[in-house]
Nucleic acid binder design. Structure first.
Lengths: 343, 343
DNA sequence: TTGTAAGCGTTATCAC
DNA sequence: GTGATAACGCTTACAA
C-alpha cells in the first residue's frame, strides 16, 4: 500500500478532503456520521497528516529550537545539560512539539544562524545560557519568534525566563556552613556578568552579614563553571589562606575540582575542610566524599521553560513571565563542624 | 520589507523562478549572467529558500533523528551522551542537516513513534543504544529510512554501525593491571545482552589467559552502567573477596560507584586497590583519585555515525559498514603496583 | 539557456 | 454541513 494522503483518505471515506481535514483538526461543523467514516479509515490505515505540508500551509512547524553554547567538554559533560534538555523535550512531546537541540559555537555561528533564522522555521526558541549572543536574540525577536531564557537576563525584561532562586540557594549554603561553626569561608563562582552569579554572591555574603560575621572580598573568586577552575583556585587558596576551613562552590563541577585539590594536598574532607556545591547533579552523591550541595530542580527548569514557550507561541499578547524555582540544600558528607576552633 | 520568496527574487532579478531555483541549488545550465543577477538579489536581501516548502517538493527534510533511551538520571548525567550528540550535531550541521535529539521512554513511546514514524519525515535516524526496540528499527526499515546504530548489534547485520573496539579496550585495561602485578582482579560490566559487553568480557579474560593467569568467573558481574551498580557490587565484593586487589569497570560511572564503596570501607586507592574505568569521560580526570581509564573517542563516534548516515541517505545502494574505532588506555592515579605480594 | 506549468499534501476561504 | 478551489513556496519535467 502506497503512502496515504488526505485525498486517498477522503476517497476511502466517501467525503471531500475538507471534511477529512476538519476531522483531523477537530474543527466543528462536521456531522457525526462523516466523522465516524473518516475516523474508521484513519485508524484502519493509521493515517497521519504529513507535517511538512501542514507546516507549509499553516506557517508553523511545531518545532522549537534549544540553543546552548558549546562550552568546553568538561562543563558539557556534567549532566546538567542533559537533564535540562530532558525536561524540555518531554514537556514538548506531551504538548505536540518537537525539539532541535543545537550547540552554538563561534566557528559554527554562521551556519547555525542561517539555519535557525532563515531557512528553518521554528515556532520558538529556548536559550540555555548567555553566550547565546545578543545578535541571536535580536534576530529572533525581529522575526517575532517567541523566546524563553533559562536564567534571567536583566537586559531583556520583555523576554520570558526561568531560573532558580540563586540568592536563596547561596544563602542556604552559607548558612549551613556558618551553623557548623565555619568563619573563614571561601566562595568560587562561575560566569561573570551574569545575574545568576551576582545573586549567588549576594546571598552568600548576606548569610554572613546576618550572622554578624565579616566577609572577605579576597576569598571570593569568579571564574567559570569548570572542574579546572575549582581545582586551580582551591590550589592557590590552600597556600594563601591556611586559616580557611570551608568553601562554597557555585556548581558541583567547581566543587569536584576543589575536592581534588584538597585531596592532593592531603586535606581531608570533611574532617579538616568542608565543601558545599550547587546544582545537585546526579553524580554529586557519588563524589568523594558525597557532596553537600544546593540542589536545583534542573529537569523542572526545562519543563517550565517549555511550558512558557509553548504558551507564548499560542497567545502572543501575554506579558513576560519570570519564574523563580526554589533550590534545596541537600546535606551529605562533605560538610562537618569545624574542629579545634572554639568560638 | 515582507518576507522574500522565490517569485519575488525572480522578479527582482528579472528571471523566472526556475532560474532562481537552479542558482540556489547549483544546477548547471544557467548563464553566468543570470547567475550573477540572481546572486546579487539573494545577497542583497539575504534570501534563503523556505526549507519547509523545499521539503514538501523534494520529499526530504534534511532533518535526522537521534534516538536514545531515557535511562536513569545517573547514567544520563555522565556526559557521555552530550559528547556523543555533540559529535553528531556538528557533523550534521557541516553537511547541511539538522538534528532532533529524542529520548525514548516506555511511557512516551507512543507519542514518539507517531511523530518519528508517521507525522515527521526524517531523512535518517541514529540509534544510540539497544533499548531502542526492535519495533522502532523495523518500522524505520519498512519506510526505507536509513539507520545507523551506535554500538554493533549482530541482530541487524544489514544496518550500518559504529563502535569502539571493545575487545581491545578491555584487553588493554586488563593487561595494564596484570603488568602491575595484580592477579585477583574483578570485572564489573554493564548492559547484558549487548555485544559490547560480550566483547569487553572476552578481551578482559583473554589478557589473563595470555598471561597464563586463571580467571575467576565469580568475580565477573554484569549489571548496568551506573554508579549505583558499581557501588553495590564493590561493596559486596569487599567482603566476599578480600584477596582482590584490582577492578576493571566497563564504564567510568561504574568506577565512580566502586571508588565510593572503597572509600567508605577505608581501602585507599591506589595504595591498596587499583581501579580502571572505561569511556574516558571528561570528568574521569577529576575523580578521586584521577581515574585510569580506557578512553573512547566519544565525539568521534558521533561524528562517524553522522557521516555514515548522511552517506547512506545520499546513496542507498551501499553495503552496510561496521566501523571500529580504537580506544586508548589513559593511565592516571587510580592504578599502582600490588603491594606485599611477592610473585 | 530559459520559462511554463504541474505537482508536493495540507489548510482556509467561500459558495452552496 | 459540505466540497471546490486557491493558497503555502519550492522543485522539476518539458517545451520553447
Amino acid at each position: 500500500m502506497d503512502r496515504l494522503n488526505i485525498d486517498k483518505v477522503a476517497k476511502l471515506a466517501h467525503v471531500s478532503r475538507s471534511v477529512v481535514s476538519r476531522v483531523i483538526n477537530n474543527h466543528p461543523n462536521v456531522s457525526e456520521e462523516a466523522r465516524q467514516r473518516v475516523m474508521e479509515v484513519v485508524e484502519k490505515y493509521n493515517y497521519r497528516p504529513n507535517s511538512v505540508a501542514r507546516s507549509l500551509a499553516t506557517r508553523s512547524t511545531y518545532q522549537i529550537g534549544v540553543l546552548t553554547s558549546r562550552i568546553g567538554e568538561e562543563s558539557l559533560g556534567n549532566g546538567y545539560w542533559s537533564l535540562l534538555y530532558l525536561g524540555i523535550f518531554e514537556e514538548c512531546i506531551r504538548r505536540g512539539y518537537y525539539v532541535h537541540f543545537s550547540f552554538y559555537s563561534s566557528t559554527m555561528a554562521d551556519e547555525l544562524h542561517q539555519y535557525l533564522l532563515n531557512e528553518h522555521h521554528l515556532d520558538g526558541v529556548i536559550c540555555l545560557n548567555e553566550e547565546v549572543t545578543d545578535f541571536t536574540v535580536k534576530k529572533l525577536a525581529e522575526k517575532e519568534i517567541p523566546i524563553v531564557l533559562v536564567g534571567h537576563n536583566p537586559a531583556y525584561p520583555e523576554i520570558c525566563s526561568v531560573d532558580v532562586n540563586n540568592y536563596d540557594g547561596a544563602y542556604k549554603a552559607a548558612k549551613h556552613l556558618i551553623e557548623l561553626g565555619h568563619k573563614q569561608v571561601g566562595g568560587i563562582f562561575g560566569d561573570q556578568n551574569v545575574q545568576e552569579t551576582e545573586h549567588r554572591i549576594k546571598g552568600f555574603k548576606a548569610a554572613f552579614e546576618d550572622a554578624g560575621l565579616p566577609t572577605n572580598e579576597e576569598s571570593i573568586s569568579v571564574g567559570s563553571y569548570s572542574q579546572r577552575d575549582g581545582y586551580r583556585t582551591m590550589n592557590r587558596w590552600i597556600k594563601k589562606y591556611p586559616e580557611m576551613t570551608a568553601l562554597f562552590c557555585a556548581s558541583d563541577t567547581i566543587a569536584m575540582g576543589a575536592l581534588l585539590a584538597l585531596y592532593e594536598n592531603k586535606i581531608t574532607v570533611p574532617d579538616k575542610f568542608s565543601v558545599v556545591g550547587f546544582d545537585g547533579l546526579p553524580i554529586s552523591r557519588y563524589l568523594i566524599p558525597p557532596l553537600t550541595t544546593v540542589a536545583q530542580p534542573t529537569y523542572g527548569k526545562g519543563e517550565k521553560a517549555a511550558q512558557l514557550l509553548i504558551d507564548s507561541i499560542n497567545n502572543r499578547e501575554k506579558d513576560a513571565v519570570h519564574l523563580n524555582l526554589e533550590p534545596k540544600l541537600v546535606i551529605r558528607k562533605s560538610t562537618a563542624p569545624v574542629k579545634n576552633q572554639g568560638a
